[in-house]
C-alpha cells in the first residue's frame, strides 16, 4: 500500500545541513498497525510527516497504491490528506472555542459534505469514541483523554484509509493512554491502516509491527504477535 524508497530528508544547506532521514526504505501493507519508535532526534516525526504528506522528502520516492506522491502538486497533496489520511496529534490540535461536534465535522467541510450530513457523521464519529454526550463541549471543557477522543473522531470521520498518529498518548496518563490505544486498535481492526509514532514500548506493543529509528536510519524492526 505504502512504499518508501531511499527517502532522505535534509534540513538546511551547506555546513548547516542536518541529515534527518537517511535512505529510508519502508513498506506498509494495507491494514497494518505500524509503530515508529526511536529516541528524540531520530527522525521519527519527520518520517511520519512525510508519510502524512505534510512534508516532502529531499530525495527518494513515496508511492501510495502505485501513485507517486512525490509528483503530486500542493493541491493533490491536500486532496490526498483530505480523502485518504486521518491525523491524530500529540497536542490534540483541536480548534479552540469550537465545539467537539464542529471540530469533528470540520474535515467534512473540505469534502463538500452538506451541513446535515456533516452533523450526522460527526455525531456518529463522536459516539464511536464514547463522547456522544459531549458533542457541544468546547475543548477547554474536556479532559485530556476526552480531547484526544475528539481528535480521533475527527481523524476517522472521513473514513480514511490510513490513520497517522503522532504520539497520540503523549499528553495522557497510563490509564487514558491504554483506553486511547484500544480505540485506535479497534479502528485498525476495522481495516484502517495505522502508522503511529511513540517513544513508549507499551504503547508500541499495540501495533503489529514496530520500526526502530536511530539517527535517521531504520535500526531494526519487530513484528508483534497478535
Amino acid at each position: 500500500m505504502i512504499k518508501l524508497t531511499q527517502i532522505n530528508k535534509i534540513y538546511g544547506s551547506g555546513g548547516a545541513a542536518t541529515h534527518v532521514l537517511k535512505n529510508i526504505d519502508l513498506e506498509i501493507k494495507q491494514g497494518e498497525f505500524v509503530a515508529i519508535m526511536g529516541p528524540s532526534g531520530s527522525g521519527k516525526s519527520t518520517l511520519l510527516n512525510i508519510l502524512g504528506a505534510l512534508d516532502e522528502p529531499s530525495s527518494g520516492s513515496y508511492t501510495f497504491l502505485d501513485a507517486n506522491i512525490n509528483s503530486f502538486s500542493k493541491e493533490q497533496l491536500a486532496l490526498f490528506r483530505r480523502y485518504i489520511l486521518g491525523f491524530i496529534f500529540q497536542g490534540f490540535n483541536l480548534l479552540k472555542k469550537t465545539s467537539a461536534l464542529e471540530n469533528v465535522a470540520m474535515p467534512l467541510i473540505y469534502q463538500g459534505v452538506g451541513a446535515n450530513e456533516r452533523r450526522e457523521r460527526a455525531q456518529s464519529a463522536l459516539s464511536s469514541v464514547g463522547l456522544e454526550s459531549h458533542i457541544n463541549y468546547n475543548p477547554n471543557e474536556l479532559s485530556g483523554g476526552q480531547q484526544q477522543r475528539v481528535a480521533i473522531a475527527r481523524a476517522i470521520v472521513t473514513n480514511p484509509q490510513v490513520l497517522i498518529a503522532d504520539e497520540p498518548t503523549g499528553n495522557l496518563d497510563t490509564q487514558r493512554s491504554h483506553e486511547i490505544m484500544e480505540l485506535i486498535r479497534s479502528f485498525n481492526k476495522n481495516g484502517i491502516t495505522v502508522i503511529m509514532v511513540t517513544h513508549e514500548e507499551d504503547i508500541a506493543s499495540f501495533a503489529t509491527r514496530t520500526i526502530y529509528l536511530r539517527d535517521g536510519v531504520i535500526e531494526r524492526e519487530r513484528t508483534h504477535a497478535l
Binding site: 490528506r81 483530505r82 491525523f87 483541536l94 480548534l95 472521513t158
Partner: peptide
C-alpha cells in the same frame, strides 16, 4: 497559524 495548519492537515487547500 496552528489552526491553519490543522485545516491544511485535514485537507484544506491553499485556496480554501
Amino acid at each position: 497559524t496552528r489552526e491553519i495548519g490543522i485545516r491544511m492537515a485535514v485537507g484544506a487547500m491553499a485556496k480554501d
